[in-house]
Amino acid sequence: MALLEVENLRVEFPTRRGSLLALDDVSFQIEEGEVLGVVGESGAGKSLTGAAIIGLLEPPGRVTAGEIKLEDRRIDNLSYEEMRKIRGEKIGAIFQDPLTSLNPLYTIGRQLIETIRVHMDLTQEEAKGRAIDLLGEVGIPAAERRIDSYPHEFSGGMRQRVVIALALCANPRLIIADEPTTALDVSIQAQIIALIKKLCREHKTAVMLITHDMGVIAETADRVAVMYAGRIAEVGPVRRVVKQPKHPYTVGLMGAIPMVGHDVERLTQIDGAMPRLTEIPRGCSFNPRCPKVFARCREERPELMHAGRNAEAACWQFDKEGRRG
């Protein structure tokens, strides 16, 4: 049994010009202790997927079909209060901008202790001890002293560490990290990645790592799901996806990333841009930009299908029977 199962998730935004389908038929699992990377360009739906799981979709967006199961229990139909309890205890969240996750008016100690005491039956003193331990664990030097500081007294990297400590308060089973390193400098980024990896190993916490940065995914994730225009284009172990991408979009994406040591005159270029939600083409949403497009791609929408060992891709070129027939 997987820790998190998402099945045929569909998220829509009703607007006055009709409903926008932001997520269409998204299915994936996250195993205990696993880091699943979710990668895609802005607007691909990766952050929405995370928001749908923790029940924080911005209105008027809502889940219109599908199921989200955590430890075999449906969580997509819970009330706001029930969901809030799950958000602290079972699922932690880390967002891109650490400042939005921290209240600037309270010391970080107060915020940590309050969160700990909401979810765990501890006294003030015990909670404070745990808060200091957590801060130490995420690499904040002199935690006993720093616990009484306010968020603005920390640098960006240190703030993100505090947010991670906050997400870890109740020992959640799953952490949803939405672009946790994007706002940080490269050297700090490497530190935060190393920290997430270490915590994942030590606590057996699963992580859903949402990012646009394939480098971060390659460093951190076990498996990766590539999203395009509100659907999953390809899923597989990170090494396989990076080294032998199957879906033409992933192939293009990997070739588009400039790499140190690769002396190429031009980068692989996928022409055009990801379609807006109102203009998603018929058939496979990637077909207008796809170098391998054939008739069927323009008519039918491919589901995720077997695409070789360890590989699932939503692309008709892997539908052997369909092609023969």
Binding site: D185, S187, I193, D213
Partner: peptide, 20 residues
Amino acid sequence: ETIPDLEMTGRERVPVAGEV
């Protein structure tokens, strides 16, 4: 050192401590 390892060489990076 901070360049992500997209080659999947498995190189374990030693993140440098400290900030600007």
